[in-house]
Design a protein around this nucleic acid. Structure first.
Length: 805
RNA sequence: GCUGGUGUGGUGGAAUAGGCAGACACAAGGGACUUAAAAUCCCUCGGACUAAUAAUCCGUACCGGUUCAAGUCCGGUCACCAGCACCA
């Protein structure tokens, strides 16, 4: 028994692959292409943990299999290297972020290469490389030119620890997505990207792509499209107060109105409001609440009634009071609502608290004095003049038409999605290529001046004032206006980390191009990404942002497809041994280096694919990994029972054909765990058979190669299984007719209970099978003296005899 | 609260399209080999009743339904996970 030495074998083959460029994508566009993509890593100081290789290995398996099937495969990697952790580390240790980034990348690269992933390293990219971010800036300029990037004074989320603004997508449960620190509101002038202009297409085009349902649902949810109507109410001051509602059918039941604390009419009405002081106080309190507090106290409704101004309900000319309350958000709809307490839970709570009238206008529910009746499907309109007797849906249509006819309302679609806050007050990011000129306003720098390089600074500490560290670089800031030649200053904020990752998959197609982000031919040939795997946590961040940028690039004719990724899958997390999320503080982190060192990369890869359902979280198990190592050794030792023969022998024919089918299908269906189980079953069968022919071993080796590339190359060589490397072979074909066993075992049931098992030929006719079944002693006993009601034979599966006394 | 998902042995997990529940592993127990240990190989391994690996019964979160047949389909309940959360 030869002991398998993974260390020598693995480094040997890794070197050969790299030297020969075996996994470089070819520019031969006559071949069918396959573009597999994983989310490129952020090279943090901690290095890799065992969670990283799960998706890399999964798509590596797919990529290797597709290469064997003759595809021209692009499977690239790079570094998403701008960002706060690096910058913070740099500040703490007084090392420039550029150097930190370089060190981290080196470490990551070494770790990833030790796993034998078939990345095309000749296409490696780095978002902090000026040759790369030149094009990130170029895309920003195109957005600016089309009016989709604009600077605006607005109320933004401010992370008190990162000391910079956050996008809405980066605020999770009222705290910073990255560092979990408190998020407060600040009014600041920020660069914004008009992602809302693409809201509809970002929803509708989900029909064009193959994403898991949960991903599509989450994106739709986040964009939050709702269809309804705007209604104009007149105030007693003569002003118009417009509200947005999805239930214009309930207009007759509107008994009061609510405006948000930030609503501009409050300012306008200042001299008419008898209780202005009280309202000002309420506004102030509302503004001081952080997002976290605001969601925490969401239960209890507060508010102040405006004294001196009321509104008129246009359908019945009744005067109704107006309240100010923070349960109405200024950023959604018109920042004002009509309140229908009988048919809206929030309005109902508010009405109960302030003792306001509750008028039922949709009947069919419970007593509206006791709870709101919100069901749209079953109710019938009542107390509603010309709407009486209609269903909710009919009433909505009729009311919208009536509002439009009277010119006091209109159909309207609203979204929860807000524009993307795109500037960050930090150093380690792409400079925004815009200058501000007093005469000309915001002017883009000339494209020939790209990349606008990040200047070297001595201190890149963030400031509490909300100014970028670049603001101190007076030499760099002061410049000439590209438009009028006058004095101008550069934008000192930088782009968020999501900028570089919003288009990186395009750069891989043609990574060294200096004239375009990628050539037309490369884009035409490689687009779209065929299979993109990534984490669920990016569903409403990177995945949404990059779809938006890609659609924009499509609109301006840069890319050939409306969607960037044809198919998306999502891996589950690898948890610690105790079933908790791996983290330093929990002390349950496993470093892949240790596993590769002790068991080898093949074992590591095999285990991560065997651990369970790829899409679900799975706890790390140090003892299960030994089972995978055993399998590798059993495979390696097949050489001891090798016999000559260039065919698959008849006794093993069906086992091999079935395995070829199963392994191939399972890899495509992200069921790596059962593909490996099938290979384990096959090796069990071969071992108990006692010998393996060269042909059989060759087939087995190719099937295993995508999972365990090193040991399979080694066996291929040692046993002289064929010309060249395994990586240069063809994926085996199976013969459907040979997948069938010559005899199969079927179960015989009587009244659904198993009474016997029969070994029969699968071709046997129903009559004969039933006859055999009824000849069985146990079956005979069970049906003796009973009347046979029904006899069922499902071919190749089961017999069921239904009897009654 | 809304949306999506999950629930199967001691453990990770299998089970086409409704057709033998527990594949493949791990752990555990027993045996072989060995001076011994490790490694390896062989056997057992959901539960109950059993001398029995004879027969029978129970068993896929819970309750009910459809069906010759339900882990799978339908209705309801519970628990857990993820995302969103006063979005009018």
């Amino acid at each position: 028994m030869v002991k398998y030495n993974h260390k020598n074998v693995e480094s040997k083959w890794q070197k050969i692959w790299e030297d020969k460029g075996v996994f470089h994508a070819s520019d031969d566009t006559s071949k069918e292409k396959f573009y597999a993509l994983i989310e490129f890593p952020y090279p943090s100081g901690q290095g890799l943990h065992v969670g990283h290789p799960r998706p890399y290995t999964a798509l590596d398996t797919v990529a290797r299999k597709r290469r064997l099937q003759g595809y021209n495969v692009l499977y690239p990697i790079g570094w998403d290297a701008f960002g706060l952790p690096t910058e913070n580390y740099a500040i703490k240790n007084h090392i420039h972020p550029e150097i930190v980034t370089k060190q981290n990348i080196e470490r990551f690269k070494k770790q990833i290469q030790s796993l034998g992933i078939s990345f095309d390293w000749s296409r490696e990219i780095n978002t902090t490389d000026p040759d790369y971010y030149k094009w990130t800036q170029w895309i920003f300029l195109q957005l600016f030119k089309k009016g989709l990037a604009y600077k605006k004074e607005m109320n933004v989320n401010w992370c008190t620890s990162c000391k910079c603004v956050l996008a809405n997508e980066e605020v999770v449960n009222g705290v910073c997505e990255r560092c979990s620190s408190e998020v407060i509101h600040k009014v600041k002038s920020q660069w914004m990207l008009k992602i809302t202009a693409y809201a509809d297409r970002l929803i509708n085009d989900l029909d064009l792509v193959d994403y898991p349902p949960r991903v599509k649902a989450q994106q739709k949810n986040w964009i939050g499209r709702s269809t309804g109507a705007e209604v104009d109410f007149k105030a007693t001051t003569g002003d118009t107060l417009t509200v947005y509602t999805t239930r214009c059918d309930t207009l007759f039941g509107a008994t009061y109105m609510v405006i948000s604390p930030e609503h501009p009419l409050i300012e306008k009405w200042a001299d008419k409001l008898e209780n202005l002081d009280e309202i000002k106080k309420y506004q102030l309190e509302a503004s001081k609440k952080s997002d976290f507090e605001r969601t925490e106290v969401a239960k209890d409704k507060t508010g102040i009634r405006l004294k001196g101004v009321e509104a008129v309900n246009p359908v019945n000319n009744t005067q109704i009071p107006i309240f100010v309350s923070d349960y109405v958000l200024v950023s959604y709809g018109t920042g004002a609502i009509m309140a229908v307490p009988a048919h809206d839970t929030r309005d109902w709570e508010f009405a109960k608290k302030f003792d306001l009238p509750i008028i039922e206008v949709v009947k069919g529910g419970k007593d509206v004095q006791k709870e709101a009746f919100t069901d749209c499907a079953t109710g019938i309109l009542t107390n509603s003049g010309f709407l009486n007797g209609l269903s909710v849906e009919e009433a909505k249509k009729k009311m919208t038409a009536w509002l439009e006819e009277k010119k006091i309302g209109r159909a309207k679609v609203n979204y929860k999605l807000r524009d993307w806050v795109f500037s960050r007050q930090r150093y380690w990011g792409e400079p925004i290529p815009i200058v501000h000129c007093e005469k000309c306003g915001f002017v883009p720098i000339d494209e020939s001046e790209l990349p606008l390089k990040l200047p070297m600074v001595d201190s890149y500490e963030p400031t509490d004032t909300g100014e970028s560290p670049l603001a101190k670089m007076t030499d760099w800031i002061n410049t000439k206006c590209p438009c009028c030649g006058g004095k101008a200053v550069r934008e000192t904020d930088t782009m968020p980390q999501w900028a570089g990752s919003s288009w990186y998959f395009l750069r891989y197609m043609d990574p060294h191009n200096n004239d375009a982000l990628a050539s037309k031919q490369a884009l035409e040939y490689w687009s779209p990404v065929d299979w993109y795997n990534g984490g669920m946590e990016h569903t409403t961040l990177h995945l949404l942002y990059s779809r938006f940028w890609h659609k924009f690039l499509y609109d301006i004719g840069v890319v050939p497809t409306p969607e960037p990724y044809a198919k998306r899958t999502s891996h589950g997390m690898i948890l610690g041994e105790n079933g908790e999320k791996m983290s330093k503080s929990r002390g349950n982190v496993v470093n892949p280096d240790d596993i590769v060192n002790e068991y080898g990369a093949d074992t590591m890869r095999l285990y991560e694919m065997f651990i369970g359902d790829f899409e679900k979280a799975a706890p790390w198990s140090p003892s299960s990994i030994r089972g995978c190592r055993r399998f590798i050794e059993r495979f390696y030792n097949l050489q001891n029972i090798l016999v000559d023969g260039d065919t698959i022998r008849p006794e093993l024919e069906s086992a091999f054909n079935k395995a070829i089918k199963k392994v191939g299908d399972d890899i495509e269906n992200i069921k790596f765990n059962t593909a490996i189980a099938a290979l384990m079953s096959l090796i069990n069968e071969v071992t108990s058979f006692g010998s393996i022919s060269k042909k059989e071993l060759a087939v087995f080796t190719i099937l295993l190669n995508p999972f365990a590339p090193h040991v399979t190359e080694e066996i291929w060589e040692i046993c002289s299984l064929g010309e060249g490397m395994v990586a240069e072979q063809s994926w085996p074909e199976y013969d459907e007719s040979k997948c069938v066993e010559q005899t199969i075992e079927i179960a015989v049931q009587v009244n659904g209970k198993i009474k016997a098992k029969l070994n029969i030929s699968p071709d046997l006719e129903q009559n004969e099978v039933l006859k055999l079944a009824k000849d069985d002693e146990n079956v005979k006993k069970a049906i003796e003296g009973m009347n046979i009601i029904k006899e069922i034979y499902v071919k190749g599966r089961i017999v069921n005899i239904v009897v009654k006394p």
